[in-house]
Design a binder for these strands. Structure first.
Length: 273
DNA sequence: CAATGATCCTGTCCGC
DNA sequence: TGCGGACAGGATCATT
């Protein structure tokens, strides 16, 4: 499940593969994957700048257009030769100069590629919260955004409008490292504990970035290599935590939560229950 | 406005 | 060997 580190890894891979080569076309293989009018007008074009906002990849083209790519759960971008059969789950592809092709492969078909004018990118993005690795994401920010909310902290960390880029895996790992109970109510958590959450968020994401993301199911880099952070997971899909305690499994918003009831006790005003 | 739950989709896994 | 059902989950929409 691509979250911030995986999305950044894919983005870096695309930029590195593409270099100064021009994108020459974009083709939809599964109707609805590619959105936006005037697809032909946008190509050919070189990349002017590529950036990430939350889990969105934004590729700014030199001709005034931009591509917004979201991988959702199973989306992959794969660098390949411009020949051969389409992959079984290929939903769209870019043709690229010098006989190259960038394939968008997505078994569950939830991923999207949107083409729009550069100055309309923000209109096509939802209201996103702070970037967790930027200085703007600190305990004061988090406290302000949580003060009127009464939701489990794990749900809050996965809310893209509060902080952008964290999904299920990193939410579990952040809370384990911070020692916070995932059911802690967002506006009851002490500032000191919010500071721990912020610090561990930055640490976990930075560490995962160094390892090119986490490959727990089918995440792959643009060159098809796996990420490496799955080696460092402490509770996600684990039977026991690094202390040897059994890991408990529950649900938040339909997502599986993994936490250690012994290590993660902070944040509950009333720890009973 | 806030919180919760259903929905989209398909490969994989489990039990019988 | 095959089948039904549960599960995986990011974002969006509907409901309370």
């Amino acid at each position: 499940m691509p979250e911030l580190p995986e999305v950044q890894t894919v983005l870096d891979g695309v930029v590195s593969s593409l270099g100064s080569l021009r994108l020459t076309g974009l083709y939809d293989l599964y109707p609805g994957t590619v959105k936006g009018a005037n697809i032909e007008e946008a190509f050919p074009a070189r990349l002017k700048n590529a950036r990430r906002r939350g889990k969105y990849i934004i590729m700014e083209l030199e001709n005034g257009y931009a591509l917004i790519i979201h991988l959702r759960m199973t989306g992959k971008l794969v660098w390949d030769k411009d020949e051969g059969e389409a992959h079984r789950h290929e939903r769209a592809y870019f043709t690229v100069e010098k006989g190259n092709r960038l394939r968008f492969i997505d078994p569950r078909t939830f991923g999207k590629i949107t083409l729009c004018p550069l100055d309309e990118v923000e209109n096509h993005l939802p209201a996103l919260g702070a970037e967790p690795l930027e200085a703007e994401f600190d305990a004061a920010y988090l406290q302000e955004r949580l003060q009127n909310r009464r939701i489990p902290i794990k749900t809050a960390l996965m809310d893209q409008g509060i902080v952008a880029g964290i999904g299920n895996i990193y939410a579990c790992e952040i809370l384990y490292r911070a020692g916070i109970n995932p059911d802690a109510i967002s506006n009851e958590i002490k500032l000191a504990h919010l500071k721990r959450i912020v610090a561990e968020t930055k640490a976990v994401l930075a560490e995962a970035l160094l390892h090119n993301g986490t490959s727990v199911s089918d995440f792959r880099q643009v060159d098809d290599k796996q990420g490496g952070f799955q080696e460092f997971l402490r509770v996600y899909q684990k039977e026991s935590c690094p202390q040897g305690h059994p890991v408990k499994r529950s649900k938040h918003g339909g997502r599986s939560t993994f936490h250690c009831p012994i290590c993660q006790t902070k944040g509950r005003v009333n720890p009973a229950k």
